[in-house]
Amino acid sequence: MFLFFAADSRFTQQELPACKPILTPGWVITTFICVGILFIPIGLACLFASEHVVEIVDRYDYDCVPSHYRNDSILFIQDSKTNKTCTRSLTVTKQMKSPVFIYYQLDNFYQNHRRYVKSRSDKQLRSKSHEGDTVSCKPEAVTANGAPIVPCGLIAWSLFNDTYSFSVKNKGLDVSKKDIAWKSDQDHKFGSDVYPKNFQNGSLIGGAKLNSSIPLSEQLDLMVWMRTAALPNFRKLYGKIEVDLHPDDVITVIIENNYNTYGFGGKKKLVLSTTSWIGGKNSFLGRAYITVGGLCLFLAVTFILVYVIKPRPLGDPSYLSWNRNPATRGN
């Protein structure tokens, strides 16, 4: 069905009723003041909440390489016979109320690369009936015998495989994996009838292996990893410690340093963090609100001075085209 409009209709002449505010100095100054008064308290509240987040960051990729391998870290990480276990000690500086979130942070890892992001099959992840849908997964699509790899693609193949265990005063701390992945991923994107198959069976192992007896809908670490990061430096949730950590507690961390970031100059960090009502530690949001609010107040004061010192007469709004009588516009 097609709609035709006359050449002189109100629609074609753009004369339909519309909101056409007149930005007088009073309206502009008032708007800037209101935005400034609103944004600055919000920014201060965000900064206050961020400052109360307790965070411990420990870079371990360099120190967890034995001194005689420091000049050839790649050989160390690729050799299956070397001992990858590393022990680190972290000191709690302030009270950390549960849950304490555990993140692993990777730097200089470009998960946003176009070919990397496309190397996956959402249909295969969702349903067993699409097990053979591996066209978009190259080069990790099928085995040498042509059997499909489940889950296929470079994203799953490069799954992070460092592991952490924690203890305080020789008492182990349980790491909970509950709710670390999005509920929508568990319910809709990863099928309960899809099991790992032919995964990491090639000559070149990319990362962690998966238990073939557990469906993808329960592989929480995989779900977290499959949500690719937009920036080259990112954190992903590893688990949660559901007990309080007290000041001066010394946390002993046993790390299995398996993941190869040495080949591309990457960095690995372990992060323990509490949260606030705005999430983790993030001063950018508060500073952004304060900056915008301050800029608006500065512009408001500037416009007030200009308006008082060197005022200009306002035009008569009745002469605006949309306020004039259509019959007299041609005169």
Rank of each mutant, 00 (worst) to 15 (best):
S121K: 02
W182V: 05
K236R: 13
V243H: 08
H188E: 12
T134V: 15
I42S: 08
I241A: 11
Y110W: 11
I22D: 01
Q219F: 09
G294Y: 12
S273C: 04
A230I: 03
S276Y: 07
K240T: 14
I205A: 10
D133N: 12
I56C: 03
K240C: 07
T261F: 10
G132K: 14
S318F: 06
T261S: 09
H246W: 11
K310V: 07
V306T: 10
A45F: 08
N198A: 07
A141I: 04
V92M: 08
W27D: 00
G206S: 11
N258D: 09
G280H: 07
F284Q: 05
E218R: 15
I254L: 08
G146Y: 05
K269N: 14
P151Q: 07
T143L: 06
P311Y: 12
D63Q: 14
F32W: 07
I77V: 11
L216M: 06
F101C: 03
L305A: 13
T302S: 11
A288M: 14
L47E: 05
L16M: 13
D63K: 15
D122N: 08
L305C: 15
G172M: 12
G294M: 06
P151H: 04
W27V: 03
A288K: 09
H130L: 08
S283C: 06
I254R: 05
I29V: 06
I22V: 12
V54P: 00
G265E: 10
K189D: 13
L210C: 06
P148M: 07
C296M: 13
T93M: 10
R120Y: 02
E140W: 15
S89P: 00
L125D: 09
A147S: 12
F166D: 00
H246Q: 12
N201V: 09
W322F: 15
A300C: 08
F160M: 14
N258T: 08
P313C: 04
L3P: 00
V306W: 13
V35D: 04
V92P: 02
S203H: 11
G330W: 15
G280Y: 08
L154I: 01
L295S: 15
A181C: 09
A18H: 04
L16C: 06
S158P: 00
F32D: 00
S213P: 01
G280W: 03
V271F: 01
D244K: 12
A288I: 09
R227W: 14
R10S: 07
S136E: 14
P317Y: 08
A208H: 03
P311H: 10
D221M: 11
N258Q: 10
C86N: 08
L23M: 11
E218G: 04
P41D: 10
W157F: 14
F5W: 07
S167W: 02
A288R: 09
G266A: 14
D221K: 10
A6F: 02
P99W: 12
T228D: 12
N201S: 13
K84E: 14
I29N: 04
R235K: 15
S158V: 03
W277F: 13
E131T: 11
Y116N: 02
H246G: 03
L23S: 09
T302N: 04
F298E: 09
W157N: 11
P313G: 04
E140A: 13
L204C: 06
R287P: 00
I33F: 10
F298M: 13
G266D: 11
N198R: 11
T24G: 04
R70S: 12
I102Q: 05
A230Q: 14
R126W: 00
L3S: 10
M1L: 09
